[in-house]
Amino acid sequence: MAKFKCKVCGYIHEGSSAPAECPTCKAPASEFVEEKKKISTNSNGYTLIYAAVMVVIVAFLLAAVSSALKAKQDDNVKLATKKQILSAVNINSTDANADFNKYVKAVLDTEGNEKGAVADFNVIGSEKYNVVYKCELPQGVKYIIPLVGNGLWGAIGGYISVDENKSTVYGVFFTHDSETPGLGAKITTDEFRNQFVGKNILRDSALTSIAVVKAGTAVNDKDQVDAISGGTLTSNGVNDMLEKCLGNFNSFLTK
């Protein structure tokens, strides 16, 4: 049974069609409108079904998009990683794949032994933090060591390259997931990175790493660079990351 509502007085008539005349205000049939039955959006069943359907749709949508784009995303990540590795030896590459194959001559493990062909090595695979990239540039042989650590809000990482003497820093590259823009995120700037160039990670053939400390602090037993003001915790993260990751390659670096 449909319901009809009088627009003039609000009287509700139940029947298959609108009445010829409103019993209370005498308005004609044209003043009546049919009241559509609405599904109650407040019932428990509706709420549950709505939630379930929404979750299923969203899950499928995200899964489909993610798996469809996975291969393309991985390629992008590999390319970007190669670009980062090259940045550590101050090559600003536009074609990272070609340049990587051109300059990187060998991939070495933590002891300095060769690990198979460069072209086969997966730069984003599980071994990515346990290898040294040996580069031959016009400026000489450089070793690139991967870095990974914790900043203030998330992971930080990068690459540091040293000369053939395995001590003098040739270049560094830093990246971060979610450090504060304008503060900790400044570790990626040239200003911060250039400080490392020419510093030594070895002293008397023992590994010392490089200290990242507040400007003006005196450090006696190793080389130092200035931390970022307002980004103390991120700077400490860089300091710890260098110490830990270079430590992994202690036997290679001091050999």
């Binding site: 969203v58 949508l61 995200l62 998009v65 993610s66 784009l69 393309k72 995303q73 992008n76 990540v77 390319l79 970007a80």
Partner: peptide, 15 residues
Amino acid sequence: TLVTLVSEILKAFAY
């Protein structure tokens, strides 16, 4: 969902 979709698409086409 919207934000995740946008970020996934950007990752694939505008890294």
